[in-house]
């Protein structure tokens, strides 16, 4: 499940240590709605410095999701900085999300 790093975004990231995230959701499914809310909260608290979040609705872009290797929803991919990481679920377990993204919980 390796992620290709889009070149455009990579050049953006060089300036500041922007964290690139992509969240795959399935329309208004409860877990997906919850995941967006949870992720936004995490970003507000822990990624104040800069982050880019792309939300992909699998219901609208099934082909793209399949090409990206998405299996279940909601599913979060950290694209940058490396190493890439994947987290599945509605992101309610904040400690796990933070550790998977390489961010220490409680700091910043």
């Amino acid at each position: 499940m390796s992620r290709r790093l889009p070149k455009r975004k990579a050049s953006d990231a060089e300036v500041t240590t922007v964290v690139l995230l992509r969240l795959y959701i399935a329309g208004a499914a409860p877990n997906s709605v919850q995941a967006i809310a949870n992720l936004e909260a995490i970003c507000r608290e822990h990624l104040k410095d800069g982050h880019k979040l792309e939300v992909v609705d699998v219901l609208e872009h099934p082909g793209r999701a399949m090409a990206d290797g998405v299996l279940v929803t909601p599913s979060l991919a950290k694209l940058f900085p490396l190493p890439a990481a994947n987290v599945v679920g509605n992101l309610s377990d904040r400690a796990k999300v933070l550790s998977a993204l390489g961010l220490k919980s409680g700091t910043r």
Binding site: M66, V70, T73, N86, V88, G89, K96
Partner: peptide, 28 residues
């Protein structure tokens, strides 16, 4: 073949569902 092999190292942080997967399969 739809590779739905979930890696054992996959981090699970909360509840998930198959809505997205089924949408992809429906498209296929």
């Amino acid at each position: 073949f739809f590779d739905a092999h979930l890696s054992p190292t996959l981090v699970k942080a909360g509840d998930f569902d198959l809505t997205g997967m089924l949408a992809m399969l429906a498209a296929k």
